[in-house]
Amino acid sequence: MLNEEKIYMPVPQQMGRGDRMGRGPYEKSGIIEDTGLPPHKTVEERFEVLFPVEDITNDSGRVIDRKLLANELDVKVELWYLPYGTRNSDPFLWREAAKTISISTEGR
């Protein structure tokens, strides 16, 4: 349903100039921004995931109701350390958490 990624890292500047990011150490000089996790600070993220629904429409096509298709969602959050920026090369899974989120089926 949703697969969202956030990247935390110092973003190196290419050759210490402009807005272009450098990749190899030989062309990195400076930092454009640092989205890495700063020491002794807490970084908070909030994600929203919509439950699957089926819209019910009237004869003119207007959505008049919404039918919940499942009242439980399995959510998995993973924190990966990717030394080469991709899970295809030497990835390290640092943390993972799984939650099942329920929603009430009663009420209007």
Partner: peptide, 9 residues
């Protein structure tokens, strides 16, 4: 209906 997931690192 939606799920809210909060992560603190």
């Amino acid at each position: 209906p939606k799920a809210v997931v909060k992560v603190a690192m």
